[in-house]
């Protein structure tokens, strides 16, 4: 619903801008390129995939940057502009999937991976510690190559020191 209203408003605005080019030009220069880029870098070019709008060199992207400039000049917030772009051109223009539907996976899975990793680390070490079997022969004692013995000596020395 909201999208439709936005659209109607924006169309009205576009007509307004078009009908009165003199005024439009008065508005646009007040928005600096930096302000435009701040929004543009959070948006992706809908046709040349995986290129953020702020660095995309094509004519189409230049037009979209101008669109962002107009919206900023009209006082739109970054969120509003992003939503507008997503409605106009599809969800792929957003740098990160919006929090809805299947997209939850993107937000939920990474923390789960981390938690799973911690769990694995703890269980592996714990289980390994429990099952320490009395070793007949410590593998350390097996003849090590010369440099290793040197290092061992050094490490021993270090521990003594402490």
């Amino acid at each position: 619903m909201r999208g439709k209203n936005l659209l109607i408003i924006s169309m009205a605005i576009v007509f307004f801008c078009f009908a009165t080019p003199v005024r439009a030009q008065e508005i646009t220069p007040t928005v600096s390129d930096d302000e435009v880029n701040r929004v543009a870098q959070e948006l992706y070019c809908p046709v040349c995939e995986n290129t953020p709008l702020d660095v995309c060199p094509t004519k189409a992207c230049a037009q979209w940057r101008e669109l962002i400039r107009e919206k900023i000049a009209l006082g739109w917030s970054e969120q509003q502009i992003k939503r507008f772009f997503a409605e106009q051109y599809g969800g792929q223009v957003l740098a990160v999937p919006p929090l809805q539907g299947l997209n939850w996976i993107v937000y939920v899975l990474p923390p789960l991976v981390v938690i799973g990793g911690i769990y694995l680390a703890v269980t592996i070490v714990k289980r390994s510690r429990k099952s320490v079997i009395p070793e007949k022969k410590d593998p350390f004692q097996s003849p090590l190559p010369a440099p290793e013995t040197v290092m061992k000596q050094i490490e021993k020395d270090l521990h003594k020191e402490e």
């Binding site: 969800g91 957003l94 740098a95 539907g101 299947l102």
Partner: peptide, 14 residues
């Protein structure tokens, strides 16, 4: 996954 199951194109950015 998204395009296959929901038909929506998404970008997973930096």
């Amino acid at each position: 996954l998204s395009e296959l199951f929901t038909g929506q194109q998404v970008t997973v950015g930096p």
